[in-house]
Design a protein around this nucleic acid. Structure first.
Lengths: 206, 206, 206, 206
DNA sequence: GATGAATGAGCTTTCATTCAT
DNA sequence: TATGAATGAAAGCTCATTCAT
């Protein structure tokens, strides 16, 4: 007699992944704070206790759910990452900046609840990410442009990346602070344009 | 005629402020998440129930403790805010950027726990802040420099502010994410310099 | 220097009676259950702690407030109690029955909350009632009629009184049980007539 | 496959019923007021939190415990309800009156504490009672006797029922008011006789 | 005497985790 | 291995009573 299979798993792969997927859905919907073990079990249509057969505790499952959520959002963004040399630097940066906003708008609310749960964070950190994060892609891109002379060789790419990445965070956090519905914070094109202009040309006197 | 005074208040005037101060200390030490009513009462050396004589609920007290924490950090930063026209733009920006880092390093960990507690946020928001936030000071400063020609009149100040403010957030959040002890994230001078250079000169080809 | 006077007592007699009156008003409005010491102090516009200078505890005050409420309702009913020999027995009984309904409708809801508070009951019982309760008046009246032959000398007055008094309770309790608003339970005249007929003539075959 | 069973349930089937029975015992012993969730859990020899796996809240459990108490008392009264036409009307009425006294003596103290707890009352009301209440049985009986001429066809049965039912309440409430131990209020046979006589023959002059 | 804030036991309810089945 | 009820520590909050002023 083979081991029992969860009721909700009618032929699905394994229960571990099924639970992570359920956690991911809830995290997408409600963030990482305030979720109970029961919520997750119910979302997975599975018994309350199962998760302890597959994870050390609730936090581990949440951490993995969060990682899955991040991967899913990244995968869903679609579109190729610009390559140094293609098109114009400004257009490429606009693409990357827009992509970063979309990514953070989708992901940051989920992360916020995890920041106060160290066990969730360490479970998250322990997952294997095959994909380099957008931040790294941006840095690589800029260094590529530097090599071919379309970005100032003397520029500090890390500083530029920090500021762009910071803008991603900033916009979303301000929305969270004000308690607004998270839908409306999409930056308009003119904001993206202004940011890219600022990064490329600076604000100093000409 | 006057009623009884709390045992812990040995001449300290008023218990409401005493409780806010206790909440503030705990928030500084442990953040805004995970604090219990009993923790606060114990920190204040006061009976469990008192807080309900002075606040509608735990969240109101936490919101006010958070506001007190912000004010305390701001007050502790010391040093004048630069005025447009003084010294050099680069030096003034370095001062403001350093100040922002110090502020966010001290405050953001406390805020993070509030982001998932809407009632704490609204109690926080309902307090009167006399001081304009650093973000506004930065914007004002840049516009002042624009008027006297030391910043490009065509520059988008809001974009620059968002990026600088974002960098403040970014650095601290990355620290929180990695679960490091919060002491070490002080940016070295070279990072501040690079950031200011980037803002002023941009990274485009020259 | 004479002892201090409560703020709310601007020339009124004494605070003890003032507190009893406040309790009475609250009992009339909300019953005897669920009242807090603070509710009463606020209603009396007086400090929370005063009541302990005048009463052993909350229950004693409630008991006295309940007694005051009963007296007030009795006094407010107005109209003379019929005397044996006057008018007709049926008419006199109708008057008494109606009076009893009005009395119980006003008083029983207040009593219900006291029945589970033995200390309230004993404080209530310890008050001096100058007025005989309606039940006693009814019994006296019937015995008076017995003496002059308008009520069967062989009748058991106590049994009749119990049944009439019971009907008073019954109607109001059914209302309380059903959670109805207490206003509508006034028995119509035909019900009173039927009850008096039943008491006088019985329901046995003629 | 089946989940864990409560320690206190040594083969007793289901914990929901076990909890209701515990509530019922406490209600029988101490009434419906002043019971805490912990009291009930201790009586059931069960963890504090279990009740929330089976009931929405304390009030629902108390309402069901009260209903169980009523059913138990009704079942324990035993003895057939008289049928119109059997024996004599007086004897049948004596049986019903005695039964009503026993029922109310056992049940009314439990109800009194519920009258100030609307949620308990509505939980009680929502249970399905198969058995018609004694009040209805009495009315039916009297109407049956009316049909066969052993009760005056012109009599108002509802009035008579209200008065008898009232007497049931009256006796018990007076006992509760006086704070006596609830054991002694059994009416002696002579009281029952007098009441039935009064109902049948009235107290008017002959 | 009056004041009204302080006290702290006690309440109902939640929920991560365990474990007999 | 899955089940899901049982567990019990802990949470937020109330409120009768006390007592320094």
């Amino acid at each position: 007699m083979s081991p029992r299979r969860a009721a909700a798993l009618r032929g699905d792969a394994n229960l571990r992944e099924h639970l992570i997927a359920a956690a991911e859905r809830l995290i997408a919907r409600r963030g990482t704070a305030g979720l109970t073990v029961r919520d997750i079990a119910r979302e997975a249509e599975v018994a309350d206790g199962v998760l302890y057969n597959h994870f050390a505790n609730k936090e581990e499952l949440l951490g993995l759910g969060l990682a899955a959520r991040v991967r899913a959002v990244e995968a869903g963004l679609g579109g190729a990452v610009p390559t140094a040399g293609d098109g114009t630097v400004a257009e490429n940066l606009r693409t990357l900046v827009r992509r970063g906003f979309a990514l953070h708008r989708a992901i940051l609310p989920a992360f916020v609840g995890a920041l106060t749960q160290p066990k969730v964070l360490s479970a998250y950190a322990s997952h294997e990410t095959d994909e380099p994060p957008l931040r790294a892609l941006l840095a690589d891109y800029l260094r590529g442009e530097q090599r071919i002379g379309r970005v100032d060789a003397a520029a500090d790419v890390d500083a530029a990346v920090t500021m762009i990445s910071g803008a991603w965070h900033d916009l979303v956090l301000r929305g969270l602070l004000s308690g607004e519905p998270p839908a409306s914070e999409e930056p308009v094109d003119s904001q993206v344009d202004a940011m890219v202009d600022t990064v490329l040309r600076g604000i100093g006197p000409r």
